[in-house]
Amino acid sequence: MNGNRLSLFLWAVVPALFGLGGSGLTRLGMIPNLVVMGRYHADLAALWLVAGLSISLLVVSAWAGQRWMEKRVSSALAEEREGQAADRRRFLRRLDHELKNPLTTICLGIANLRSSSQLQADEVSSLERIVHQTQRLHGLVEDLRRLAELDEAHLDRTRTSLPEILEESVLLAQSTPEWAARAVNMKLQQVPWPVAHMWGDRDLLVVAFRNLVENALKFTAASDQVEVRAMDDGRYAVVEVADTGPGIAPDEMPHIFDELFRGRNARELPGSGLGLALVRRIVSLHGGRIDVRSRIDQGTVVRVSLSLAEA
């Protein structure tokens, strides 16, 4: 990028300087000024100047034209992506809507069956399996609703402490029995000062970081490591949730934030495929950035940058 900038600068400035220099030298009489072309006399000083400036102008306008085209193309692409995202959200909202009535009926039916005492033992265990699967559907509908709510959410921003949010998120992730014993290594910047406060919606940020920590725990074994790091660089707080899990395949990487996307590794694991979509939505509502780096068989780092509160 810098090399490009430099060569553009040279192409734009050198011809103009060259023209100016030539014109000056001609004026000073160091180069003969009068050129005779047939019947016409040309002023060489002017020719130098015009030629140099024209080349520079040409280079600059070509560059500006290209920039303009690039911008048009990228804004058209962004618009299309935005349109697709909106379509997807509309579809998900419909799905959410259509699932609710059948699910309510099933829940009521289960409650009615449970209160009838004439069930055989094997029927009871069938019923429990139905209950279990219904709870999964329930979870999906809840996540869909949250996602839809975030579309029209306004943030309840207060001055919040990121370390507190992270500690709470880890605690909540560990409140799930299967992860209660799992260690999460916290490395929060303390020296020479702790991470500065930020202006954000504490509760939504807890949801986002809890999701990231849970993801890290879900995709790793007990022997793996999970680490949560936070630091600030004066303008942004940077949080990383890292794990030594199996990593994300390069071909899946572009889709991990899509709603309902589930990677090959995730097929047997519980979840709705809405977690990361939710996280991204929350981060972008805060004007932040989220990036993922991953290496197969080495692990994954999710990095979230959020701007700090003005001191």
Partner: peptide, 15 residues
Amino acid sequence: VWGWSYAVGTRAVDI
């Protein structure tokens, strides 16, 4: 009030 029963944790209410 939140619509997020599971995700935030009850401490959010206490705050």
